[in-house]
Nucleic acid binder design. Structure first.
Lengths: 202, 202
DNA sequence: TTGCTAAGCGGACAGGTGTCCGCTAGGTTC
DNA sequence: GAACCTAGCGGACACCTGTCCGCTTAGCAA
């Protein structure tokens, strides 16, 4: 086996392990069930998801150490899409309008997918900063938008994705019921103004 | 008894019930123990606190329906003090400097008292908006600061305490370990700039 | 005092999260 | 195919939160 491993690919020795076939199947079944259950009720018991997926608690928690890991993974595809929107928006609009519209979409998405905001919040804060796991796409989208705006002189220089995520943290606190639209708009307006302050262009 | 109640005070019929003596004692013992335990470890089990206080689960949860209710109450005195600072700062500084310094103190306090930021976060977000329970003092402090600044023309008109709390929500996400100072400062600078934008004075 | 009454007590219990560990079976080698 | 060996399984378990409900007792009236 040692020889086989060596031959195959040194790179995969540590991460992205090849995963045994049954493990792969289990993981996918869990995600499948989780999408259904979480859509139905954002705080569906993890144990119920495990049971419906036909796996033990141990298996479940080995794949997803906690709730937000699961949620982030379940919605990964969708999050990826939101992130991708950044580039499209930048191509068709002025940088500052693109940034603002992207934030609106992010808000809309976070409100739509119950439980996602929660996961985002936890992931954003808990460990250090944005060291989050499924954050990479979001972070790069933000970097893209900020860079474009900085260059256009519509956002003060030196704003990091971390700054940005902290600034919009209020989003994850808004209750998806009630009139989140108004509250989110006011928050995002304020953040935009904050970002603009100190920019070359005024 | 009915007659006695009527005679005593109609106002207290609903809220601020007079509380039976043993109830009073229990509540105080719980708070006492909670302060000690929470200082030691922010996520001390509530059940342990109840036990150390010598009360049953039921008694405990009747007094404090959940963790943040307890934390908010434990730190109420301290929170009150922070809130009070607002007036003092306004008396000795320009409104905008007072606002900024107050935010700094709030941040410092939130970072110092482990577990408080958590409670603030939950209280801020979960139910509706700032409908929070122990928020009243903070809210009025914020109102005070915003009004002074609006009048001085150093903050755009029409900002509500709710807006403000959402804007600084990032604070509660910062990890009290690591270098919170830098991250908080950057966030608060950004928020201040956002608040300033659109003000009369520039 | 004595008796009454409901406010308050407190422990058992239901339900959820996350961990641990002995066993199973997938993949590989011969 | 047989044998091995370990990645992965899965359920029992430990611990926590929050609820429920029969019992206790503080406070009042006579």
């Amino acid at each position: 086996m040692r020889r086989k491993r060596d031959a195959q690919a040194e790179a995969e020795t540590r991460k992205d392990a090849p995963l045994r076939s049954d493990a792969q199947r289990n993981r996918e079944r869990i995600l499948e069930v989780a999408l259904a259950e979480l859509t139905r009720s954002a705080d569906a018991p993890l144990s119920a998801i495990a049971k419906k997926a036909g796996v033990g608690q141990g298996t479940f928690y080995r794949n997803f150490p906690n709730r937000e890991a699961l949620v982030l993974e379940v919605y990964r595809y969708e999050v990826q899409q939101v992130a991708d929107t950044a580039a499209q928006l930048l191509a068709t609009r002025a940088p500052d309008r693109a940034l603002r519209e992207w934030m609106d979409r992010l808000a809309q998405y976070a409100m739509a997918k119950a439980g996602l905001a929660d996961a985002m919040r936890r992931a954003t804060c808990s460990r250090g900063s944005l060291a989050g796991l499924g954050h990479a796409p979001l972070t790069s989208a933000i970097t893209l938008l900020l860079a474009a705006n900085e260059e256009a002189g519509t956002v003060r220089p030196g704003v990091t994705p971390d700054d940005f995520l902290l600034a919009i943290a209020g989003l994850w606190q808004i209750d998806p019921h009630s009139d989140w639209q108004a509250r989110a708009a006011r928050l995002l307006d304020l953040v935009m103004d904050g970002l603009r302050a100190g920019a070359r262009q005024r």
